[in-house]
Structure formats: structure tokens, C-alpha cells
Computed example of a mutant assay.
Amino acid sequence: MSVNKEIKKVTTNTLQKMKANGEKISMLTAYDFSFAKLFDEAGLEVILVGDSASNVMAGHETTLPITLDQMIYHAQSVIRGTHRALVIVDLPFGSYQGNSEVALASAIRIMKETGAHGLKIEGGEEIEDSVKKIVSAGIPVMGHLGLTPQSIYQFGTYNVRAKEEAEANKLKKDALILQNAGCFGVVLEKIPASLAKEVTESLTIPTIGIGAGGYCDGQVLVMHDMLGINSEFKPRFLRQYLNLAENIKGAVQQYIADVKSNDFPNEKESY
């Protein structure tokens, strides 16, 4: 079913109202025009152009190798397919850490060159200055706490974060710092559901969970995981809605067989 063209665009203000009204926010990643168009027409509120493109689109082991130029390319493609959803773009590793001037320059490039509606940045207190600087330039920023994949070599594991009291306390403090710095929302990744509930209730801005239980104001998944394109990745938090890997392989094998048996193209498919 196509979404009516007259439906109003989703904005950061829309998400704020959804939290206030107790209406859950749906968010998925997308990296190209075709999928963005389908997701937008399906009625998704938020599309994240994730640095997970490094994994699912480019085949890297981590999110670290993807560049700002590559993120801009993916974001441009997604924006061309989107009319209603709010499009948020990840600032990639190395484009903001440790220097708020560099962070602002990266943010401005993404906004000017892609037409996206906002950015997402990983980290808490250590990126406070960058968030403030970007927000002061009129650019919406979403935070990201818990398991922050750009810090994977520091963590050394993709296990659940903030199970210990000290890390949980830091996460709670970081969430408030991000809100006070001007973030319009925050992603909570792979943390205990009880902690996510506490953080969600302590903030006036919406929380989006991934592996953080059902108390968050919304949920996000990587499209390749949720659609079963990436069949190797099966964490507990993932609900797979399709098995496209099998369907696509089956279709391609049928195509190969039809070509080889001279069944395709047939008379009706010829001019």
C-alpha cells in the first residue's frame, strides 16, 4: 500500500510529539535509492543511513573503514528515494572525534551535499563540545550510547554493555549530557532493558533501541538483518521478517537454469 503523497514529512518535532503521546517510532537503515523508496512508501518514520554500510554494503569487518565521502554518496542515494521519512546520517569514524571544528565541518558537508535532515554521533561526555557546535549551526543531532560500534577495538567485544553499575551510571549521565547539549534523540544499543527503561523515563527526548528491550520510544534494525539478506548475523535482539537470502539465491538459480535450458527468453519475451 502506497502512503498518501499528502502525508506530512516527519521531523524531529514529530518524534518529540510521538514520545509525548506514547506512540512508538519505527526506524530502519537504508543505503540506496530503491530500498529507501520502498521503506518511505511503507510508512517508516526514520531512515538511518548507517555507517553499517561499511559491513553490509562494502564487506568490511567493522564500521571503521567507511569514509565521509562514502557516507555522503549513500545519503544522497537515500534522499532521492525519500519524501516523507526523516533521514539521519551517521558521522563516520574519524570525522568528528577529538575536534569539534572537524566535527562541524563534517556535519556541514553532509547537510549541504546530501539534503539529509540530521546526523547521528556515537559517544557521551567526550563528544559534548562537538554536539553543541553542530547543534548551534542549526543541524539536528541524534546521540548513540551503549554498544558504540566505532569503539569496537576499545571494547574488544560486541557483548551487552552497561551491565556493571559504573558503566550504567556513566551511560545515564551521558544521556542527560547529550540531551542538555541539544540532541533531539538518542540510540541505545545492546544494554539491559531495565537500564534502557530508566534512561527513557529520565529523558524528554526520544530513545531508539536496538537490543535494548521494549521500553524505548522506538526501535531500529539494520535492513539486511531484518530482511534476512545477511543470514550469518543472528543475535537475540534480531527479529527476521523475511528470508531474502534464500529467496534471492533460489530466484537466481532458477534464472541460471532457464538461461542454460534456453527456456528464457521464450517467444513472448522476444521481439
Rank of each mutant, 00 (worst) to 15 (best):
L91D: 08
P140F: 06
G138T: 05
V49R: 01
P140Q: 06
K24F: 09
D90E: 12
V135I: 05
V135R: 03
R109G: 07
G124D: 09
S26N: 07
G115T: 08
A42M: 11
Y96I: 00
E61G: 03
N99K: 04
L64F: 06
H60N: 15
I72M: 03
S95C: 10
A137V: 04
I110A: 10
E45F: 00
R109I: 02
K24L: 08
G43D: 08
E126Y: 13
G94I: 00
E101N: 14
L119D: 14
A42D: 09
L68K: 02
S130M: 01
L44P: 00
K37N: 15
L28I: 10
S54Q: 09
Y31P: 01
V46E: 05
E125P: 00
Q97H: 13
H74D: 13
E113M: 11
D129Q: 14
V87K: 01
H83E: 14
A42E: 12
S130K: 00
A103D: 09
P92A: 14
D40L: 04
V49T: 05
A107E: 04
Q70I: 05
P140D: 11
T63N: 12
M71N: 12
V56W: 14
T82V: 07
G124Q: 04
A30H: 07
H74I: 07
A58F: 15
G115E: 12
I134P: 02
A107W: 01
T29Y: 13
H83N: 14
M57S: 02
K120G: 09
F33H: 14
T82F: 03
R80C: 07
V56T: 15
I108R: 13
F33R: 04
T114Q: 10
K37A: 14
I108V: 15
N55L: 01
K132L: 05
T63Q: 08
A30W: 08
E125Q: 14
H117I: 13
A53R: 00
A105M: 05
M27K: 00
E61Q: 13
A105R: 05
G50S: 15
E125R: 11
T67F: 09
F93Y: 15
K133P: 08
R80N: 10
D129A: 15
M111H: 02
E45R: 00
I88S: 03
S54T: 09
V87E: 07
G81F: 04
D129H: 11
R109M: 09
T67S: 15
V87L: 03
E61Y: 06
D32C: 06
S136G: 00
Y73Q: 12
E23C: 05
L64Q: 13
L68V: 05
D40R: 01
I121W: 07
H60G: 05
A107H: 02
Q70A: 13
S136Y: 00
L91W: 05
T63H: 07
K120P: 10
G94L: 01
K132Q: 13
K37I: 01
A105G: 01
T67D: 12
G118C: 13
H83T: 06
L68Y: 06
V78Y: 04
S130N: 02
P65F: 02
G50I: 05
T67Y: 08
S136E: 09
Q70G: 11
V89N: 08
G81I: 01
D32R: 01
R109V: 03
